[in-house]
Amino acid sequence: MQTMIAVKDWIKGFYGKYDMIIEIVVKFAVAFAALKLMDTRLGFWDLFENPFVIILVSLFCSILPWGLETTVLAFCMLASVYKQSMEIALLLGAFLLIIALLYYSFHPGDPVVLVLTPVLLALKLPCILPLIVGLTGSFVSVIPMACGIIIYYLLGYIKTAPEIIALDDMSIADIPAKFKNVIEGIVENKEMWAVIAIIVAVLLIVYLIHLLPFAYSWYAATGVGTLIMAVSGILLDTPISVIGAVLALIISAVYVFFRYDVDYKRTDRLRFEDDDYYYYVTAIPRISVKKFGGKNKKKDEDY
């Protein structure tokens, strides 16, 4: 345990020192994964088949703020879809515009969730995000997460149903039918709704449990979230696998370990009073090691 805490402190120090570079690398990795997903899931635009182009666009994205990076990736996706079908690109553009106007106009904090959700779904790891966002973000992040799932399935639908989408011999009069087919194809996708329901439910449960005032509530929230996800994933026949859920649990546990550094063994329960109130205070100290391999420093030792 001592070593783990020391490693954690070292990593924290390392991040503090090189945070700018690490952020650029993370942004590059997210953009690269998203563009690669577009290529494998869509593959309509020859330009994205060239890895050099993907690297160049990812490099450009890595120096942008998250909001702008998401916008650039959205335009790349629209351009890629446009190559296959103008109507679907219009539909997708309308969907993205609605998200931007209704959600991001007053909650601009989490555009990365919208990008990461389809990427993690493609990597068969959709369980990670609801656990981590439930622990750190706000519960309204369910909206970009649900939109990310819809985008993922819409891209998949374009790939799996080209006969509905790319009918070259269609006349202008058939365009409404094309729209109707795509909308019905998406709305009637039971798997998509099941994934949305599971991920939204897990995020809300994790968010609520981690707020409860009991020891190890963060770990309990991740455990319960994983269990619900694994069971419902199997029952509802979705791409959420047990292995994926367990992997998500491990990643979330590591994340909790780094983020939530409290020592429940040294919990103090205090009671004091003034003229107006009685105070019942539970004080839980943080744990840290000052130097790598050094002794566990109690932060309250001065008192």
């Binding site: 539909l91 309308a94 515009l97 609605i98 106007l101 209704l102 106009s105 365009i175 409404p176 729209f179 109707k180 909308i183």
Partner: peptide, 18 residues
Amino acid sequence: SFSLCYVIVMTISVMCRF
């Protein structure tokens, strides 16, 4: 914003029921 979004949704809906 909401009105603009509704116009978009309405346009798509009209196209579907053309």
